[in-house]
Each structure stands twice: as structure tokens, then as C-alpha cells.
Design a protein around this nucleic acid. Structure first.
Lengths: 314, 314
DNA sequence: AGCCCTTGCGCAAACGTTTGCGCAAGCACT
DNA sequence: AGTGCTTGCGCAAACGTTTGCGCAAGGGCT
């Protein structure tokens, strides 16, 4: 019977049809657990998401699950609450057999390597590149930053500040680099006085925006949508009109960009594609088809022009 | 050995200690699949999230996973992409054995009942009450609406509009009812001209806000944070100052409320508690401890006053 | 001192598949 | 017509646990 259900082995056509018909009528699909025990394949993968509630991860999970199901896999999720990274995977492995892990990671090399160490299963890291790993899938936020800043330059801005994420971190640095590259290319200023670090939460944004205003910027490139929105709020508080007096551009096209006032010009990020690509890569590793194909840097999406950017006032 | 690992059966203390020690040293935890086969328990539950990307579900998933893991369960997620509801659960059941399902549902009774029909496992429905089900866990958004509107009334507002969600749906109606109850209680107007339906996406918000302005409101109670933010944006476009000319209050305390300008006054919703409660209830059903205890309506959180509400101008 | 009962331990069956292997039957070729 | 090869089918072992049951040993009671 198993030979029929998976079209394998030598079975007469007639027998096959008869069995398939009966199986269909009864809605029989076999016992997944028994199959998993015998074949040592659970058809289950795990996705670990970190403490920081980056909205990117929600869409990545959704996309990953859809892709996994298309391939006949189920997706477990686990929330890594910032303790010892490895414990989560160990815990899960205790009561479910997983074939591979997708780790949605923020920064912190040490913790990430430690988490990795706790599993002998194939893994894929998303949202950042970990040096020397070879199975990382991230978005080229450096290029995304460049696109955003080039848009500002095209509008005529000459003093463009960068509201940075976490400097020193993979994504924070990539975005700062993209900002700097676009400016360097055009011969515009990109000194440290034009960079203000705010991290990824709104808390430190007001001070950082004030610093950039002090540096005389006419436009701000924010590392994330959330801090970009917070920057606009701060500009309102400071009595600066957006975009007439100060333009704001950021990345990650999301509903938040539409409901802010003014609606925010952003560079779209392929967050769902990142989730899908992670599953495809992980399943390739699981099937032993390939290993260490190399890291993957997804190109950013298009610039979505809304109302937070305009030519600077004369 | 199994007797030792689960502290069951008659085993000498000394033997128990010796085995535990060795197991620990080897990091041995048994094979989850073999155990599942023998005991017919997979220690896995499934959470199905609907197409609408309600940010509530992200935190509910996270909270549910944490609670499930504490109880020794793993959480599968599945994204129900709006097709035939039942197919998702059937698909998943084909390659993983699940012990119960949490269905995060929007409205549409028919589809939900259909989804339910496709599993003979215990289930819990979150985010709405389905008549006659008995295992639903939702947030009392009617009470949340009342709290928000009472806040506006306390500030002195007399004409308070309701930017409705999907009228006819469980949550849309609950919020409208809460709005109306608060007004009725105080003898304030709550006619249909003060209600404008915008659904749950920002698209229809501008027209709806315009309609409310046409009805002469000094304050708007928005059914969701997202539409509330969109309403504020529309008010800016219409040249109305917030909160001086029009106040806005909504529910669901989230970062978006902090980065809007002005920062939005909201009634917090216990979304994480909903996720946790769903897991607790589901596991109780799975363990056969109880069945059909009845639906659960979680009380809303506190009012978080920010800058989008103020006393009306004289 | 003998008997019975309690206590601990180990053997083996069973969970529901997959899959290797052997056997039977049918057909073609010599 | 007989032999050999191909083809289809069914039997049984194995995956790694859990758990019922039987057996042996030791201690307490009569």
C-alpha cells in the first residue's frame, strides 16, 4: 500500500487504481507519526524568531509557512525570549523531531553562534549575514538605503542626515554604508555629524532627530519604517513641516507608511521572498541536494513615492 | 528506562538516580517520534491565522508559543490564505499529527464553521465568539470601546463619531455597541449619522472621516489602531488640528500609537493573554480535563492617555 | 522457621508504517 | 515444450519507544 501512495515500487496499474480509489473514499492518508518513525523524516521545520518584535518577521513567517506547506512540510515557530539561545531549540527538539531550523536573527554574533551550536540539523539564518556561515539569507539593505538617499539627492537635497539603527550591527551598518555610498558618489557631505543613532525603538528618536536638525539637514534617511515615523512625529513637534522643510525617506513598505501623516516614501523590502527563499534553501540542505551554496543577498524592491519627500525649499 | 524519565512505575531510588545521571550526561531525551507513535500523543498543537494581517495575531502567536512550550507542547502555524478553510487543517494533518487547533478567526461564520468541520480534534477559536461553539476566547472590545468613549465624554465631548470596522461582523458590531452604550448612558447622540464604516484597512478611512466631519463631530472613536492613525492623517489633510479641533481615541496599544503624530490615546487590549488563554484552554480540552467550559471574554486593558485627545474647543 | 506479600527489574508485545526479499505466475525465447 | 527472466504481490522485519506482565528476591509476620 505504501508503494501505491508514493508511486514507487512495482505495482500493477489496476491494483494501484483500486487502492487509490478506496483510500480516497476513506480519506486515508496514513499515520504521519508511524511514517516519520520508519523513514526518520518528520517533514517539520522550525523557525526561531528573536525577542525584538520586528514586523518583518511576521510576514517572513507567513511566507515561510506557505512555501513549506507547498513542499509538504509543516512549520513550527519558537520565540526566543532573549535567554540562552540554544535552549529554545533544545527544548523543541525534546518533543518534536525537526529536520532543519530557520533562525530569524538580529545582531549579536555570539548569541547567534551559540544558538547554532545547539543543533546538529541544517540551518538557515535570515535577516543578516553571519560571517563564515554560508547559509544566510538577508536583504541588501545597503542597496535599499542607497536608493532612498539617491531619491533625496535627485530631489535636490544636499545635506542629508542618517537616522541610524544599531551601529555595529549587521543591518545598522549596512544601511549607514548605503547612505554614505550614495552621498560619496555625488560628492555630498557624509560626516559623523550627519549620523545619529537611534536603534530600533522610537525612544531615542527625538534626541537623534534634534541632533540632525542641529546639523542643518534638509532631509533624513531613517534606517527603519518605525523610526522614520517617529522622526516625522518629532519633526512635527519641532514645528518643522514635512516634506516642505524636511524630507523623510526610509525602507520597508508597510501599512504604517500609508497611515502616517504625511504618508511615508519608502523603499520596499522583499521580506516575504526572504521567508520563501529561506525555506527553499533549508529544504535543499535537508534533502542533501546542496550544502553551503553561499550566502544570499536579496535586492531591495522599488521606491514607493508618497508624501514625505519633496524638493528642499530654496 | 521510560519509567524513570517520567517518574512513573516502581523503580528503586538508586536505579533511578543512576539512569538520570547517565541520561543527563549523554543529553538523551528519547525519540519524540517513537514516543508519539506509542502513546498516540504528539505534543503538537496548530494555530491557524487568517488572511487579514491583523497585528493582533503576531503577538497572539508569540504568546501562545511561549505558553505551549512551557507546557511541553510545540506550536505549528498555518496561514489560511482565504481559500477553502478546511483544506489547511487537512493538509497539515496529512504530515503531522496535531492534538488540537487554535483558530484565529475574523468574521464570516460560514467559513469558520467549515474550517471547524474539517478536524475531529479539539479546537479553540480566538478573536471572536462563534454562537453555539463554547470554546471561543475573545477580547471584550465592547467594553474597550466604552472606556475610550467615556474618556472622550469625560473630556467634555458631546458629538462623538464612530469610525466603524466591519459592521455585521462580531468585532465591528461589538465596538459599535460599546460606543453606543457609552453615549446612551450619558444621553448623548448616537444616531446612524455618527457612524461611518471603514472596515479594517486604511483605504476607506478618508471618506468615512469626511462623513463624520460632515456630521459635526468633535471627537472620533476609531474601531482599530490602524484606522485611527489613518483618521488622524485624514484630519491633517482636512486642516483639522488634533486634538485641538478633533480628538481621536482607539484601542490596541502598540508602537504605532507612539510614533503617530500626535501620539494616539488607546485602550490596551490583552492580545497576549488571549494567546495564552487559548493554549491553556486547548490543552485542558486535549487532556480531557474539561469540555465546553464556555466562551471567555477577556476584559480590556487600561486607557493609555497620549496626545490625540483633549477637551473640545469652546 | 516457613510462608506470603511487597518491591524491583527485565522481557516482550504493540504502536503503524516502510521496504527488502522471496515466491508464484506469466510470457517470450530457444 | 521447456527453461529462464520479468513482473506483481505479500510476508515479515525494523524503526524506538511504552507498558503489561511475570519472575525473582527480600523482608515481615505468624
Amino acid at each position: 500500500m505504501s508503494r501505491v501512495l508514493q508511486n514507487k515500487g512495482r505495482v500493477a496499474d489496476e491494483t494501484r487504481k483500486r487502492i487509490l480509489k478506496t483510500a480516497n473514499r476513506l480519506g486515508y492518508h496514513g499515520n504521519p507519526v508511524a511514517r516519520a518513525l520508519k523513514t526518520a523524516k518528520s517533514s517539520t521545520i522550525l523557525m526561531v524568531v528573536p525577542q525584538i518584535e520586528n514586523p518583518i518577521f511576521a510576514s517572513a513567517i507567513i511566507a515561510a509557512e506557505t512555501e513549506a506547506r507547498r513542499a509538504g512540510y509543516a512549520l513550527l515557530v519558537a520565540y526566543d525570549q532573549g535567554g540562552v539561545g540554544s535552549e529554545v531549540i533544545e527544548d523543541i527538539s525534546r518533543y518534536s523531531m525537526i529536520e532543519g531550523v530557520i533562525i530569524a536573527s538580529f545582531d549579536e554574533d555570539d548569541r547567534l553562534r551559540q544558538t547554532l551550536a545547539s543543533t546538529n540539523r541544517p540551518h538557515v539564518i535570515i535577516n543578516r549575514i553571519l560571517q563564515g556561515d554560508g547559509n544566510c539569507i538577508a536583504i541588501d539593505t545597503c542597496a535599499a538605503a542607497r536608493i532612498g538617499v539617491e531619491h533625496l539627492i535627485g530631489l535636490g537635497h544636499r545635506r542629508i542626515g542618517h537616522l541610524a539603527g544599531r551601529l555595529g550591527g549587521f543591518n545598522g551598518e549596512a544601511r549607514r554604508r548605503g547612505w554614505a555610498e550614495a552621498l560619496t558618489q555625488t560628492g555630498l557631505p557624509h560626516g559623523d555629524e550627519l549620523v545619529a543613532e537611534a536603534g530600533y525603538s522610537p525612544d531615542r528618536v527625538p534626541d537623534a532627530v534634534d541632533a540632525l536638525l542641529g546639523a542643518g539637514v534638509t532631509a533624513i534617511h531613517a534606517a527603519t519604517l518605525l523610526t522614520g515615523a517617529a522622526a516625522i512625529a518629532r519633526l512635527h513637534v519641532r514645528g518643522k513641516r514635512v516634506p516642505e522643510e524636511v524630507s523623510v525617506v526610509t525602507m520597508h513598505d508597510d501599512l504604517l507608511a500609508c497611515v502616517a501623516y504625511p504618508a511615508i516614501t519608502t523603499v520596499a523590502l522583499p521580506t516575504e521572498e526572504m521567508g520563501r527563499a529561506a525555506v527553499r534553501r533549508l529544504l535543499a540542505l535537508v534533502d542533501g541536494e546542496a550544502q553551503d551554496i553561499g550566502d544570499l543577498l536579496l535586492p531591495p524592491g522599488k521606491l514607493v513615492e508618497r508624501s514625505s519627500t519633496a524638493a528642499p525649499q530654496q
